[in-house]
Design a protein around this nucleic acid. Structure first.
Lengths: 361, 361
DNA sequence: GCGCTCAATGTAATCGATTACAAATACCAT
DNA sequence: ATGGTATTTGTAATCGATTACATTGAGCGC
């Protein structure tokens, strides 16, 4: 009687605690070391034992405890992605690309919005130096330089990859596109249509992409012997709202450009939307080109001519490079590729561009 | 001389290992237990020692090792969010709301796309039962029932909150809006404008939101004594592409509705975009109402009349409820609020709706 | 059969924090 | 002074996997 009771309470009704590696080891008749090796370095174990262990794993329903592994391996098991404005649809595809390769490697992906008002800086430093991340992908080129110096003297920092944007003066590897060339492509398209007065809605003043794309605009204009009138370069910040804000400035110009190249699709949409409210037709009265090729671009009214960035690929490549860096210098001493990569872009012609209306030229 | 050298090599150039809790303890002249208490339960420690410890923390630049804490506390320090289609801009604001309250609580947020082709099911189960998450927010109501039963008998599962959508037959708490009422609001608006033939582009057939919103449409129609012609209920799946696909079906109808209520803004945009390609004017030839109020809605051409969902709030409330659940039954035995919550919605009237054109009615 | 190498496995220390329990101290009422 | 309670702090076990090192045994050349 008391024996049965003891038996029951000890073996069957035990507090349903998850199986540990030692449970698997017991079932398989091996040591915990062997189980661990089967799970993370199978080639070290003979095929026969491996099968036993695997069988024991499924029998017990064992799932590894990541906190324990991470503690022992002195890692965090995650990477963080620093995004300016999480709600910007431009980033979603990049994130999805990152997530694809990271999850393949068993890594968690943490996303932090660098423009959140709530003490963003402190929080990001937290991610950086709080053992939360084994690696970092930065999509925001306007972070303070200081953020990449550890606050306490010689603490080590996880590897960093920049993507899309980057902080100048840093030699961290980056995954980018040729922004200057992309902008030139857009403007060349407008020139080919016959436009002679071409405006440009720019990104934020202090942004690296803004400068590069504006340079591309000037390249194309001067190659065609056209003037780059400074009054036709309007301010923006990549957001839809700033495209709206640019419209009245364009409307107020003495001699309006017959075409406008916007440094982001969001601005192009905002710009066209506001022009429409004022009765200005695209492309009848003005042609508009965007940059990015976000999903809505193809379905805006009119469908937006734009420069396509391979956003999924950017994310995948960035994550892949980060993984290389995290694995550290290869066994052969090969320093794990320090280089940056530039991915190809493409001009997508849709309905927002046309030859200039002769009556208004 | 040699003393100076020893000093230097021993103290300064030591292998730059991060400080541990014991280093802080030594500097502060207390035990590790006390340091730990200052960090996670300050009220247990006298003010004087607390100050000493805090000073030692900043002096050493100590940062807690989360893997160690998580291991000891038997938690993972994160929550996962299950999203259908990460790239859908509808979700970004919800995620941002979730992230806001989660990061306040020091929790990582992991996002998984349930519609990724790559063995999504296995991966999600991994998140669920692999000690990766202390809690779960599900934004996808079409997950297989089985996903919420642990595969191995009595393993315990983290608490779950549904948001927006939910799986029927489950009694997990949910954060939702009144979809039926929202749809009714939209249709009532159209009726008030004078429309008598009103169509509806629906979400996926097996989706709970689809059914509720379709019911709302019928409510409003029958309250006005109007017919709910089944041929005017067109299929869709919430995506922009499906809105495009619905357009030819609407065009092919014998007696076209003069107004269409779309069950998502994305579909409304796609629908309008495709109508535009066919020379159909909105709202001149047909009025369109959306649902969600995503960012582009206000700036589409024409600006879209829609039902606004408080997306940030949905995320925040869901995360808050999840935190309550994770903290478990309160000390007083109060079972941590099992209830669901319904957040308010709002009709936003813009330019995509107008009175029906008399010449076509 | 001897000694050697190599492969497969086991033993036990370790990662760094948390917390049950114990010990010390202070304060108070009797 | 004595015992009792409340507060503060310390000691040491513990969370669950990984891995350096030790051990065993098989295979092989002579």
């Amino acid at each position: 009687m008391s024996g049965a009771k003891m038996d029951g309470s000890l073996n069957k009704i035990g507090p349903k605690t998850n199986p540990r590696i030692s449970d698997v080891a017991r079932v398989a008749g091996v040591s915990t070391a062997t189980v661990s090796r089967v799970l993370s370095n199978p080639s070290m174990v003979s095929a026969k034992t491996r099968d036993h262990v695997l069988a024991a794993v499924t029998e017990t329903g064992y799932r590894i405890n990541l906190a324990a592994r991470n503690l022992r391996r002195r890692q965090s098991g995650g990477i963080v992605v620093l995004v300016p404005h999480l709600s910007n649809p431009f980033f979603s595809q990049i994130l999805s690309g990152i997530a694809r390769v990271a999850s393949e490697a068993g890594l968690n992906v943490l996303v932090a919005d660098t423009r959140e008002p709530e003490g963003a800086d402190r929080q990001i430093a937290d991610y950086l130096f709080n053992n939360r991340a084994d690696g970092l992908i930065v999509l925001d080129g306007n972070l303070p330089e200081s953020m990449f110096q550890p606050p306490h003297n010689d603490r080590d920092m996880p590897p960093v990859i920049f993507a899309c944007e980057w902080v100048e003066g840093h030699d961290e590897p980056a995954v980018t596109i040729d922004n200057r060339h992309g902008a030139a492509l857009a403007v060349e398209h407008l020139i080919a249509l016959g436009h002679r007065r071409i405006g440009h809605i720019m990104g934020p003043r202090d942004n690296i992409l803004t400068r590069q794309r504006a340079d591309g605009v000037r390249d194309a204009l001067s190659a065609a012997g056209l003037e780059a009138d400074q009054r036709w370069f309007l301010d923006g910040d990549f957001t839809l709202a700033s495209g709206i804000a640019a419209a009245p400035h364009w409307l107020a110009l003495d001699e309006r450009p017959t075409a406008v190249f916007c440094s982001s699709d969001a601005m192009a949409c905002g710009f066209m939307s506001e022009l429409n409210r004022h009765g200005v037709q695209v492309p009848g009265d003005v042609s508009v080109v965007g940059f990015d090729d976000i999903e809505i671009a193809a379905h805006f009214i009119p469908a937006l001519t734009t420069i396509r960035q391979p956003r999924g690929a950017i994310g995948e490549v960035a994550a892949g490079m980060l993984l290389d860096l995290m694995r550290g210098p290869d066994k052969d001493g090969k320093p794990a590729e320090g280089g940056s990569r530039t991915l190809p872009i493409e001009l997508i012609v849709r309905n927002s561009t046309a030859a200039p209306n002769p009556s208004r030229t």
